[in-house]
Design a binder for these strands. Structure first.
Lengths: 334, 334
DNA sequence: CTGTTAGCGCTTTCAA
DNA sequence: TTGAAAGCGCTAACAG
């Protein structure tokens, strides 16, 4: 079903059919209606590849994410998809499994796929080769969750958030707080959250010996259980994401600890599922769908307005704290 | 960066450059290496739209899913993405939020986007207008999770699985078993699982008055809690998906019931996260990533082999039962 | 083995 | 307001 067929059938030129779809105002109402009727009857849909080739814009946004298995990114992608659709764009998502080689491959694939712009969550903006590659192409892009002064980023201030959390826990009476972190190499967020942890501990005048670094993909319940068996054992666990927090809940159970009575567990991300858990997961919440939405809006704005995207375009969104039920004062403090 | 530029730079024709990328064997090794070097230096990537327009195949697979917020579909999509990449295909996923109008819109968008084939999870194959629309185009497609004799489907036998589960619970001593189901209108899976429930109850010679139908998106904890307050209250809850099961766990807690001591809760789907919960979620497991993988393989096979996809191509994958920790004999039976 | 060339479906000047 | 025609980047005959 091509534009030619519609034109023939309607007894007009292809140019007219094209106008009916792209600038209806330039066509007399009668012709327009006539063509529209024929097109509908024929089930005509303009061929996206041809249009892209001709106009040099695809109305497709590339998205690069670590994984969809972490609900944070699934929530974000939903936000992206929703607002992209609203703005008349499609999305082409690729996952990297937190692997750096895959980042580069994904960027290449999107580049070849003629995307108009990209939204990406990279391991580390400072070192990402994929990002470097992308920059030289001058294609508009936005980083989500990442934070770096040289790039346009949509994120929350993780460091500050965790730092505040430490103070909050300290003021509840917690002294021995440990951090369960995702691998630093695979995530600048993990790094920032750890920095926030250290800063908070210093401010609260507590020792911060315990940081447990565990892989993102494997379950790590064993390591966490081990951490909880150390003496003196932590009375609170700050986890660098909600998935790790959920596993920490499990580890606490295996170690025979009651949450939050014997152990406080706090996550980071605010995934929706956390609210349905028992105990409701206490966590630092990020507006995941909004991070997606905001990324799209910024990108689309740059795409249509022609304004280049610079580090100044970065947006720091508000984080929050969900009190939940996995956080309380330590027993000895009561 | 076009093929022309590479050709000029390398001192060959565009045809030769094209051959280097598409059928390297037809080019002398020296020329090939020469061209490859130039292409690399120039950062040349073949333009996908042009290639698609010319060859009439995009190497893109459309995917239509209800939502990514349910980990089942996220897991499936990961499986799809992984095997699509392996087979040299990209994917273009669209979500419908369980809404029928959106299904049709998604199919149209994918059709216009020149996808080579589609994988979809529709609300109900028997009534889906989107599916009807798709069929007339003769584009290869596979349904995932759906089950219907007139279409190629990759799924597990939900009905049988739930029926067996009922017998299993009955043999543990459960007599008052209730079902918490997603909306029938939005999911043929929910319907099948309910049928399995009824069949199992009949076989076990139990009364099956209680089926609670709740929306997929809202949390529904309130309704479930209410169900648990009825007298006589169920001693076991079979939920038509894991998300509902998690909410049922919460409802049990709110109703002051211990799981599995006072109440057995069993889900359906086998999402990975269920294994990290406390109690570990008892559930009927589906091989979600495999469902995705298998869908891609079937589609790609049809795409390359040219063999049409018929209902006979349908695959019924094996389900399993994860014992978990939310399932036990009822108190009175011990 | 390599080059020339037509044309995929569409948009967009330019003329009428 | 409408039509004719060029050309986006690529592949695949076909010719040499």
């Amino acid at each position: 079903m091509s534009i030619q067929a519609v034109a023939d059938q309607a007894g007009v030129s292809v140019a007219t059919v094209s106008r009916v779809f792209n600038s209806p105002a330039k066509v007399t109402p009668e012709t327009r209606e006539h063509v529209e009727k024929i097109a509908l009857a024929l089930g005509y849909l303009p061929n996206a590849s041809a249009r892209t080739l001709r106009t040099q814009r695809s109305r497709v946004l590339g998205v690069v994410l670590p994984t969809l298995l972490n609900p944070v990114f699934a929530e974000c992608l939903e936000g992206i998809a929703r607002s992209a659709t609203r703005a008349g764009y499609s999305i082409l998502p690729l996952t990297t499994d937190y692997r750096i080689e895959q980042e580069e491959q994904a960027v290449n694939q999107l580049l070849a796929g003629n995307v108009d712009g990209m939204i990406l969550v990279v391991s580390n903006p400072a070192t990402s080769r994929a990002l470097k590659r992308l920059c030289v192409t001058r294609l508009p892009y936005v980083l989500a969750y990442n934070r770096h002064p040289d790039h346009p980023c949509i994120s929350v201030d993780s460091e500050q958030a965790v730092s505040e959390l430490v103070l909050r826990l300290a003021s509840l009476g917690h002294q021995n707080i440990a951090m369960v972190s995702g691998q630093f190499g695979a995530s600048d967020r993990a790094q920032q959250r750890c920095r926030g942890f250290r800063r908070g501990m210093k401010t609260a005048d507590l020792a911060d010996t315990q940081i447990l670094e565990v892989p993102f993909v494997k379950t790590a319940v064993g390591e966490i259980t081990e951490l909880l068996s150390r003496q003196p054992r932590p009375s609170a666990l700050i986890c660098s994401n909600d998935l790790l927090a959920i596993r920490s809940l499990r580890a606490a159970y295996l170690a025979g600890l009651r949450v939050p009575l014997d152990l406080t567990v706090v996550g980071f991300d605010g995934i929706a599922l956390g609210e349905d858990l028992t105990p409701i997961l206490s966590t630092i919440t990020q507006p995941n769908a909004d991070i997606g939405r905001c990324s799209v809006e910024l990108l689309v704005q740059a795409l249509t307005g022609g304004s280049a995207l610079t580090p100044d375009s970065s947006v720091s969104l508000a984080y929050g704290f969900r009190v939940g039920e996995s956080c309380a004062a330590p027993l000895h403090a009561t």
